[in-house]
Nucleic acid binder design. Structure first.
Lengths: 232, 232
DNA sequence: CGCCAACTTGATGGAAGTCAAATCCAGTGG
DNA sequence: CCACTGGATTTGACTTCCATCAAGTTGGCG
């Protein structure tokens, strides 16, 4: 069903000390980190790491999309973040990952053994600044997410989500949903049915259209923004 | 009504270059950061800084409790974090604060001019590690908070909140609420009425008692943990 | 071309919100 | 010392939004 990612650098079995491999950052400035690390591929729906796994590596997403989530003992799931190419993840300080990372699409990541990251961040100011900037961006995103989950209505959450995807891609007219409706629901703290109903509502209001399940066209960006902040 | 904090080092008007003042960390190891910075006091309910204010300083809370919150244009409020003594805050990278910080009690903080923090974190590995550790702790706390807001019921949230306060103080029997019911509600993404009702429910279940508005006694810690994870 | 998972829509219920009315204190002043 | 006052909290009645349960419907892929 899943066509497994061909990879002769198995993600979990390589020795850090022989993992220094050239990496190609697509369209980005090659930083010191880009010169170490191993590129690993994952197939759609593959797990990159699980909550509680020993955190051996930090990662940068090169291609594709990833979800970071936590699952409660009874199965309730909350997605903390959707990652786009360029994003770094698994920067926690603890020895175990606090979230599960799964590939939403075909994915390639670059893995940095943690001891190397630590060392580089001590030795190279640019690396340090990049890590700090990543942590700060994540924290800031988490704070926005908190407001959304704590204080916005279902309609506001979905509108905000569409806007967030649009802004991330720097466009005002068209967004892609690399994730399923269930993923959106678990990110927004809603059910899949509510997400569907709100999308239909937005279509009825002629604010968006959905040519297919994985795309939305924004017909009225300003109206969408108004809905997102509660000008209903 | 508020007796203003006496302070001849006004929080917003001093020149960074003459602000190097000895600070006393109560009961903590004095780090390099402790040797710079200015101590400033705030009265209950005073604002330490507001969302969108220029971020001139980073802070460490020395005494008292602080809430960090964001308010939507229509007044809905979400509290992102309650701070206890020792916590650092305002470590964002941006030029403007992304949250408002207000004193829940009489508070004293130590302010570090940001340019000094930057410089110290470049020059001194311990400072750098401390800042990174703070950012990581905050991020990790925010992730827990996301799960709470996105996927837990009102009862689970309140139970988790009480446990969180207990664990932070390292006790199993008694917690203090330095914040109002409204603050608790705004932290948990609930209304004040719901918070009250859940607290009475927990009292009815003989899991806690509330000798006064600012304290709870935990009569059955294990039951509280079970409720928090949804073993209802 | 048909299957099956993903999605959408509909009907109904329940958890939490809203509105309203006590009640409880903490701080004030007589 | 105690009554008074106003804000904070608690409780109650009712409403609403979103979840749940239950069918359909779609469309990607063999």
């Amino acid at each position: 069903m899943l066509d497994m990612a061909a990879s002769d650098q198995a993600p979990r079995s390589f020795d850090p000390r022989q993992s220094i491999v050239a990496a190609f950052e697509p369209g980005g400035e090659p930083s010191a980190l880009e010169r170490i690390g191993t590129i690993v591929q994952f197939a759609r729906n593959e797990t990159i790491f699980s909550e509680c796994d020993t955190a051996r590596y930090a990662y940068r997403l090169l291609k594709g999309f990833v979800r970071l989530s936590r699952v409660m003992i009874d199965g309730r799931r909350q997605i903390a973040q959707f990652l786009s190419p360029g994003d770094m993840f698994a920067l926690e300080g603890k020895d175990a990952h606090s979230l599960t990372a799964e590939a939403l699409t075909e994915v390639s990541v670059i893995c940095y053994p943690r001891w190397q990251v630590e060392q580089l961040s001590d030795d190279m100011p640019e690396v340090r600044r990049e890590l700090m900037a990543s942590l700060r961006r994540e924290l800031s995103a988490a704070q926005d997410h908190l407001v959304m989950l704590g204080r916005q209505t279902a309609t506001e959450r979905v509108a905000s989500f569409v806007l967030q995807l649009a802004k991330r891609r720097g466009v005002r007219d068209r967004v892609e949903f690399p994730m399923s409706r269930q993923d959106i629901a678990d990110y927004l703290g809603l059910t899949i049915e509510t997400v569907c109903r709100v999308l239909t509502e937005l279509k009825t209001l002629r604010v968006i259209t959905t040519p297919d399940r994985h795309h939305a066209i924004i017909r009225d960006f300003d109206a969408l923004e108004a809905i997102a902040i509660g000008d209903s």
